[in-house]
Design a protein around this nucleic acid. Structure first.
Lengths: 180, 180
DNA sequence: ATCACCATGTAAGCTGTTACATGATTAA
DNA sequence: TTAATCATGTAACAGCTTACATGGTGAT
């Protein structure tokens, strides 16, 4: 019954009790690399999760006109998250703009096609340096064991590295053909 | 001004004039692997594209209570598509359920974590056989030159193969860690 | 004083999904 | 005759984005 956004929030709160603001930050920078959401979507969803008894918010001292709340996972929330993780999620709708553009490369003059692929390559190369740096940061703190959140971080960022490498290899393959 | 769905439809119509029904089919099976949409979204968008002068529909004989129309690209539509392809599209929102689950692997007992990753691995292996089969089918018809739609097909499916291989390698890396 | 950041909320609008609706043709 | 396929459309709803709204704290 819980939405994917709800489960994403449970996954974050499971790691660390957090305010809506902190969760919104996470869904921009670290977790946002693979699951993004805005605060306007997060706050109502947190209210729903609390109504469903999956999280509880405790009021804390904070800045601003409205009360600040820090949420933590309940036992029911932990069950819900584990149930979702136990079965592989059905992949949602696919809307891959990059593949759509590569699918249409034949429609461009040769030089512009090369320019398009090169700029995608640049983007992936940048992403790779970001992921690789993040990854060596994690590894430098010691190899995480599979029952700690840091293992999830390492797994996610490793996927980012492997994916970016594959994307770059793809661009190189296409460039070879276009120049060849 | 045109939506991404609109550009996806232009990209398909650029290859081959098509009815809304045929476009909806494409967005299930071949093109649907990287850009999916339903007929309920496609028909109104086709009307909008025609209003904007990017495609024109010609009534043809066909089954059904309403007139059947086959759409083809106009010169303005070709310009619009080329303009979009010339600059690399801004990546839309990221909502990667698989990475979210891997990020949360630490939260599961070891055996269930292994089960989850194995089932993702199975899914990617299936995808790989589909892409690989599709790819050898294209290559068997002769190497396409970069100015033919078949080159786009080959580029897209090559990306599918490389991506699936990277996904499998990722799963294997995680499984290695989980099994110790 | 001005700016960035902390912190939470609502409203309008666009995008996308599911479901409802209609009817002809062709193959089992 | 029953089902699949061709072919098009609308309506209700869910999900997400952009923009509006408020106000406190701490640094420059």
């Amino acid at each position: 019954v819980t939405s994917t956004l709800g489960l994403a929030l449970l996954a974050l709160v499971a790691r660390q009790a957090a305010t809506g603001y902190e969760l919104a930050r996470s869904m921009e920078r670290p977790a946002g690399f693979f699951y993004a959401a805005r605060h306007s979507q997060i706050y109502p969803e947190l209210a729903r999760l609390q109504d469903a008894g999956l999280i509880v918010g405790e009021e804390i001292a904070g800045a601003g006109p409205r009360p600040t709340r820090r949420y933590r996972l309940t036992d029911a929330g932990a069950d819900e998250l584990r149930r979702w993780l136990a079965t592989p999620a059905a992949g949602g709708p696919v809307r891959d703009v990059k593949t759509l553009q590569f699918y249409s490369l034949w429609f461009l003059p040769r030089d512009e096609a090369i320019g398009l692929v090169e700029s995608w390559r640049r983007r992936h190369a940048e992403a790779l340096t970001v992921y690789a740096a993040e990854r060596s940061g994690i590894v430098a703190d010691g190899d995480p064991t599979p029952d700690t959140p840091r293992f999830g971080n390492l797994a996610a960022v490793t996927g980012g590295v492997l994916g970016a490498q594959a994307d770059i290899a793809w661009c190189d393959w296409v460039l070879d053909r276009l120049r060849g």
